[in-house]
Design a protein around this nucleic acid. Structure first.
Lengths: 206, 206
DNA sequence: CGAAAAATGGACCCGCAAGTCCAAAGCGCT
DNA sequence: AGCGCTTTGGACTTGCGGGTCCATTTTTCG
């Protein structure tokens, strides 16, 4: 992660105490966004929850709300993958794949009806280079993890070696994304489960 | 008693002229939402584009922006399925399935970086009964169309009869949703294509 | 035709939330 | 100590945009 961020790219002087405050703000904002959504979250909400002042908010995020939300997006993006560990990093047997499947389902079931990242993205616009960079990297890493799992299964002969691992990983990932999207919109988990199950079964068949 | 404040308020006296105006407003608002997103679209934008006045907006949509956006959501929801016709309704051979696949890809490629429905939903909040009803019905109908196609293919022996058509349709639909989501976020179409191709291949294998 | 209802135009209000500003602490340093 | 920096607090401004209101025009219909 490059510490320098923001469109202007102005370098910021660091300070241990200031860094801690900045962190507190990001985490508080993230929690707020998780609970109320990005559109509904106001700087004053963040200020109240984190016990900070308007001055601090703009001190650490000179470009205002957008810059803060981008930081929150990065923060949440990190969570998405870590929440799937250690299962995601050890897709080395079919039981392991099913454990991962369960983990994903449990995670999004627990998350409920709010998707922080989706909410975030619609607030700051998908065209924004910063926003696109965050999502792009998340997708890339996620897909790489899955593809790595597939390749391992190919290496031990459990998956057809002729299969394009990246393509299969892309399809499976799309299924997860869509399953989550459907769940958020309708409240039903069945699409996510179907996508995961059918996707994994598709790998298994040889 | 019987104040018109009822949310359900399905009953409204409409003259032909009024109906036309209402329609113009919805279509103009839909276009605006498609271009700028739901959050960024203001009533004044709609007013300007449709050549109407504030009074008219609130005359036809007494509950304000939310009611208008809900109408737009219904309008756009309709488009999603009709844009896939006639292919979606005639999934009766493998070439027909591929035609449909191409149609979906082309549609979302053309749509570009904005997803009206997604944008709409994040504005009105997914919890809203009205919003949920719109998306729920869209998903249900879409999935039904796909499942019907699968069942037909089973009936002519082109798909394994043991397959659960609804489950497979749910997985495929999830893949499409996710593929679109990834495309919106990253600009890459490959996930959508992979989801469709892998999904259809999965049906084909027996 | 004439009254009632609907359609229209647009000025006005008002609250909210982003963003500004500056004064006052802290804190590290020689 | 005293200087310069980061950090902090919070009052204040501002603009935007949703929503209200009413006066006027047009349509409907007996």
């Amino acid at each position: 992660m490059s510490p320098k961020s923001g469109i202007a790219g102005t370098e910021r002087p660091l300070t241990p105490k200031g860094l801690a405050t900045r962190q507190r703000i990001v985490e508080g904002a993230a929690a707020e966004v998780r609970e109320r959504g990005a559109v509904a979250t106001t700087l004053d909400d963040v200020r109240a929850r984190t016990g900070t002042s308007k001055g601090q908010l703009f001190h650490y995020f000179p470009d205002g709300k957008d810059e803060l939300l981008l930081a929150v997006a990065r923060h949440e993006s990190e969570r998405v993958l870590t929440d799937q560990q250690p299962q995601l990093g050890h897709l080395t047997s079919w039981p392991a794949w099913l454990d991962w499947r369960d983990r994903v389902v449990a995670r999004y079931l627990a998350q409920g009806t709010e998707c922080p990242l989706n909410s975030l993205m619609s607030q700051l616009g998908r065209g924004t280079p910063g926003a696109r960079a965050v999502t792009s990297e998340l997708i890339t890493r996620w897909q790489w993890e899955i593809a790595t799992g597939i390749r391992y299964m190919q290496s031990i002969g459990e998956v057809d070696a002729a299969l394009d691992a990246d393509r299969s990983a892309a399809a499976l990932l799309a299924g997860i994304q869509g399953g989550v999207a459907v769940m958020l919109a309708t409240g039903r988990i069945e699409h996510l489960e179907a996508a995961l199950d059918v996707g994994i079964e598709g790998l298994r068949r040889r």
